[in-house]
Simulated scan of single mutants.
Amino acid sequence: RRLQICPTRLPEPGGAREGSSRWGWGYPRRPPAVAMAGAAWPLSAAAGLLPASLSLTLLLGSLVVVLVLGVAAVFLEHIRKIGCMHSIERTAVSDAFFEDPGSLKKVPCPSIFDPAEKYISLIVPAYNEECRLPEALTETLNYLKQRSSADKSFTYEVLIVDDGSTDRTSKVAFEYVKKHNIDNVRVLLLGRNHGKGEAVRKGMLHSRGQLLLMLDADGATKVTDLAKLEAEVRHTLNPIPCC
Rank of each mutant, 00 (worst) to 15 (best):
D162M: 07
G191N: 05
I160P: 02
E130K: 14
T169W: 03
E139W: 03
L188V: 09
R201Y: 12
V172D: 01
S170W: 04
E139N: 10
R132D: 12
K196V: 10
R201W: 11
N142P: 00
A199H: 07
H180K: 06
Y127C: 08
K178W: 05
D151A: 12
D167I: 10
R147F: 02
M204V: 14
A199D: 06
V172G: 07
A126E: 02
Y156F: 15
L205V: 05
D163V: 08
F154R: 01
K196G: 05
T166A: 11
R147D: 01
Y156P: 02
Y176A: 08
N128P: 03
E139T: 09
K202A: 14
L205K: 06
F174D: 12
T138D: 14
E135I: 08
Y176W: 06
E157H: 06
N128C: 13
F174V: 02
N128Q: 14
D183K: 14
P134A: 00
K171W: 03
G191A: 10
E175I: 00
R186D: 03
Y143D: 09
L188R: 11
V158E: 05
T138G: 09
T138E: 15
C131S: 13
L144S: 02
E129D: 13
L188T: 04
K171L: 11
L205H: 11
N193S: 12
F174R: 13
Y176T: 01
V158P: 06
S153T: 15
R132M: 10
S148N: 15
R147Q: 15
V187E: 08
L137Q: 00
R201V: 01
G195C: 03
S148I: 04
A136L: 07
L141I: 15
F154Q: 02
E139R: 15
H206W: 01
K196I: 09
G195D: 01
S149D: 14
N184P: 00
L159W: 04
V177C: 09
G191I: 12
P134H: 03
Q146N: 12
S148D: 06
G203Y: 10
L159P: 02
T166E: 14
A126S: 12
L144M: 04
V177A: 01
H180D: 14
S207T: 03
I160Q: 04
D183C: 06
V177I: 04
V185S: 00
A150C: 05
L159G: 04
C131A: 12
D167Q: 07
Y156W: 15
L133C: 05
G195I: 10
I160Y: 09
T169K: 09
H194V: 04
F174E: 14
Y143E: 13
K196P: 00
T169I: 07
